[in-house]
Amino acid sequence: MPMLKDDYQKIEKINGVIYNMSPAANFRHGIVNGNIYGKVREGLKNSLCLVFMENLDYKYHPEVNDDYVVPDIMLVCNRKGLKHSAYHGTPKFIVETLSPATALRDKTEKKEIYEQAGVSEYWIVSPREHAVEIYYLEEGKYKLVYSYILQEDKDEKDYNADTIITLREFPHIAMTLGEIFDKVD
């Protein structure tokens, strides 16, 4: 029987366990991903690197098994690793945007997967808290280098909406903390 449009389910397979990621996260999740994706895509205009948003499986150890995850945002530079609907290689940058259903997995299992795979920069973004954690791979382990919670009230001493965040390996790709959470109420 053919699959109907309404039958589509987004899933991930981690350590042989299938996780259903349907229904989709709320609209704030998509707004944040779109904001980050737009800035990264704009910064890659004259590059061979590509950025994907929620639409490419990442087979993080295809030589061992068929496990895969679907990062919210993934930047890849080795195009030879693109095969059908998946990437087999080491992304340069990954973002996971938290939702109530995936937060624990994003902060534990997936963080460990990306660390072991050698992904040099990993962001965990929370639309609900307007927060960003930025991890850099250093000596094979992730180190939390930056942690922000948006304060957009200019009258507050901790105002930081204009704080510029750049990608470590792509310093020309920049966005402000306010731009990440633009239109997220």
Rank of each mutant, 00 (worst) to 15 (best):
158 D>S: 11
163 T>I: 07
85 S>E: 15
36 I>R: 01
97 T>D: 08
126 S>L: 04
171 P>M: 04
152 E>F: 09
63 E>L: 08
9 Q>E: 15
73 I>Q: 01
149 I>T: 15
1 M>L: 10
184 V>S: 04
19 Y>E: 08
54 E>G: 08
46 N>Q: 12
59 K>F: 05
120 S>L: 13
113 I>T: 02
72 D>G: 06
30 G>C: 04
71 P>S: 07
183 K>F: 11
121 E>M: 04
42 E>S: 11
142 Y>F: 11
185 D>M: 13
48 L>G: 15
52 F>E: 06
116 Q>D: 10
32 V>S: 00
77 C>Y: 06
81 G>C: 07
115 E>H: 08
66 D>T: 10
177 L>Q: 03
13 K>A: 08
172 H>Y: 08
149 I>Q: 14
178 G>F: 05
16 G>D: 14
114 Y>E: 04
47 S>F: 12
141 K>H: 15
161 A>W: 04
85 S>D: 15
25 A>C: 07
170 F>A: 00
86 A>T: 06
69 V>P: 00
139 E>T: 09
81 G>A: 07
57 D>W: 04
164 I>A: 02
36 I>F: 03
80 K>Y: 14
82 L>W: 12
31 I>L: 06
177 L>A: 09
58 Y>T: 03
136 Y>D: 12
91 P>T: 03
135 Y>D: 01
88 H>W: 11
34 G>A: 07
126 S>Q: 03
165 I>D: 02
180 I>H: 03
98 L>W: 02
163 T>A: 09
177 L>I: 09
86 A>S: 15
91 P>S: 06
73 I>V: 14
88 H>Y: 13
52 F>K: 07
87 Y>N: 03
41 R>C: 09
68 Y>D: 01
92 K>E: 15
55 N>W: 10
152 E>L: 05
10 K>N: 12
139 E>Y: 09
150 L>K: 00
6 D>H: 13
170 F>M: 05
132 V>I: 14
108 T>S: 12
161 A>R: 01
4 L>W: 13
7 D>W: 05
185 D>A: 14
74 M>E: 15
121 E>G: 03
171 P>V: 05
118 G>D: 10
37 Y>G: 01
140 G>P: 03
118 G>A: 10
112 E>A: 10
20 N>V: 12
82 L>A: 09
167 L>E: 00
22 S>D: 14
175 M>I: 06
159 Y>A: 07
130 H>R: 11
161 A>D: 06
119 V>N: 02
73 I>W: 06
36 I>D: 04
184 V>D: 00
61 H>I: 05
105 R>I: 02
3 M>E: 14
164 I>C: 01
92 K>P: 01
141 K>N: 15
39 K>N: 11
14 I>R: 01
23 P>A: 14
176 T>A: 03
6 D>E: 15
8 Y>I: 13
122 Y>M: 06
9 Q>S: 11
115 E>G: 05
34 G>K: 00
97 T>K: 02
48 L>I: 12
